[in-house]
């Protein structure tokens, strides 16, 4: 049962014809070819598939394509600001927040959403925000530091 939907994907208006039951994660990865969004569990328990839906971080593995008409979707591929990396991306590189990198896309989308809402998060705010993003490599310490550094950089830019 295919359905026509119109979405804004990484800033571009896009028309898609998709099976209603196809999950957003599979739609992105298998049908559109945006494999930056990762599948870690498929059940909303790991956060690797986090994307921004209408500005809010959500698990793309738990959303039917059939309910997406009119949605605004941002994936890791849309995080860059023009040709430049987002400060949170650069901070992850600088601070060693990346190891295997498989949780990184989701972690970055969650971090970006946090920083959009809270420009000066405490360590606990950060840990609370990313508690739905599992990472098996880093022990989170360097990720937390990267988010703090990105927050500082963003605040500096604003002032």
């Amino acid at each position: 049962m295919k359905k026509k939907i119109q979405v804004t994907l990484n800033g571009k208006k896009t028309e898609l014809e998709v099976p209603s039951h196809r999950l957003l994660l599979d739609l992105l990865r298998d049908e559109i070819g945006l494999t930056g969004t990762k599948e870690g569990c498929g059940t909303g328990d790991c956060g690797a598939c986090t994307v921004l839906l209408n500005g809010k971080p959500v698990n793309s593995c738990l959303i039917f394509s059939g309910e997406l008409d009119g949605a605004d979707i941002v994936t890791i591929e849309g995080l860059k600001i023009g040709p430049e990396m987002h400060p949170v991306q650069r901070a992850f590189v600088q601070d060693g927040g990346v190891q295997c990198g498989y949780c990184t896309s989701g972690m970055l989308m969650m971090s970006k959403a946090l920083l959009d809402e809270n420009p000066d998060p405490s360590e606990d705010d950060i840990r609370f925000a990313i508690s739905g993003n599992l990472c098996r490599c880093t022990g989170y310490a360097k990720i937390v530091k990267a988010v703090q550094d990105a927050a500082r950089e963003l605040r500096n830019r604003r002032s």
Binding site: T35, T75, M85, Q89, V98
Partner: peptide, 10 residues
């Protein structure tokens, strides 16, 4: 890390 850039951009 030399592989960090490609990992943070997806």
């Amino acid at each position: 890390r030399i592989d960090a850039d490609e990992k943070v951009t997806g």
